[in-house]
């Protein structure tokens, strides 16, 4: 589904991703962990071209997204993204946040978009907030709306960049719950997170990144209990 080959990314002279190789299969949940500044966000953002890639290839469903001829908006409709800071549109209601892109990009009618929006709000447990503005929601509710908004485009892949890191502890659970549900339904997901419990329970595979490389990857149980690399061991000893 996603093939990453020799991916490199530099900001000016600062090479942040040095040589990333990864394959993500359909219906797989891949969790990315690693110390701050190791390039996790940058890696994720390269997968939907929020960052311009400086070297290597990323192929999504057979489409080389680094090819100049590729329609990058088309690619993005297939790859949903959820941000640490939610990034809801503050001037639009919850429902309008969800309806906007399906109407503009998928050309759904108002009624179609609204009924899809209601379904999704029900799914994340927020149908009573349809006409609320984002500022009146709690962090956990905002993030669930952001997930619903991304799902409204019916993406084949969902990227999550530390979706619970900006939340108060008591709200982490409700967001993880939605993500677990999504995984259970067979969504292909790439999740950057510090929630090791989530990684262990939901992840099919864990990638450990450090210094712009994927240093080690394995099934969660194996990687957590039996890390092979020194760097993985020392990182895990700090977070577990």
């Amino acid at each position: 589904m996603i093939h990453v080959k020799n991916l490199k990314k530099s900001f000016g002279t600062n090479e942040v991703l040095k040589d990333i190789n990864a394959v993500i299969k359909p219906r797989e949940v891949v969790v990315v962990i690693g110390p701050s500044g190791s390039g996790k966000s940058t890696f994720l953002r390269c997968l939907n071209l929020l960052e311009t890639i400086t070297g290597g290839n990323v192929t999504i469903e057979g489409t080389d997204i680094t090819d100049k001829k590729t329609d990058i908006n088309k690619v993005r409709t297939e790859v949903g993204m959820v941000f640490q800071q939610f990034n809801l549109f503050p001037h639009k209601t919850v429902m309008e946040n969800i309806m906007l892109a399906p109407m503009r990009v998928r050309k759904l009618s108002n009624e179609e978009a609204r009924s899809k929006g209601l379904d999704l709000l029900r799914k994340v447990g927020l149908e009573e907030k349809a006409s609320a503005y984002p500022e009146s929601l709690s962090g956990g509710q905002k993030q669930r709306v952001a997930i619903a908004r991304a799902l409204a485009m019916e993406p084949k892949i969902m990227l999550f960049d530390e979706p619970t890191s900006a939340l108060d502890p008591e709200m982490v659970g409700e967001v993880l719950e939605v993500m677990k549900q999504l995984a259970k339904e067979g969504m292909t997901m790439v999740v950057v997170t510090h929630e090791m419990g989530f990684a262990r329970e939901v992840g099919d595979r864990v990638l450990f990144m450090d210094g712009g490389y994927i240093v080690e990857e394995n099934e969660p149980k194996e990687l957590f209990e039996n890390p092979q690399q020194e760097r993985t061991k020392s990182f895990l000893s700090k977070v577990l």
Binding site: N48, L50, N73, R76, F89, L100, A150
Partner: peptide, 20 residues
């Protein structure tokens, strides 16, 4: 983050400017 969220939903630059 507003532009990024809008673009990540597949809206193009002009649409994102106009609506977001």
């Amino acid at each position: 983050g507003q532009m990024e969220a809008s673009r990540s939903l597949g809206m193009n630059h002009v649409q994102s400017m106009k609506d977001v």
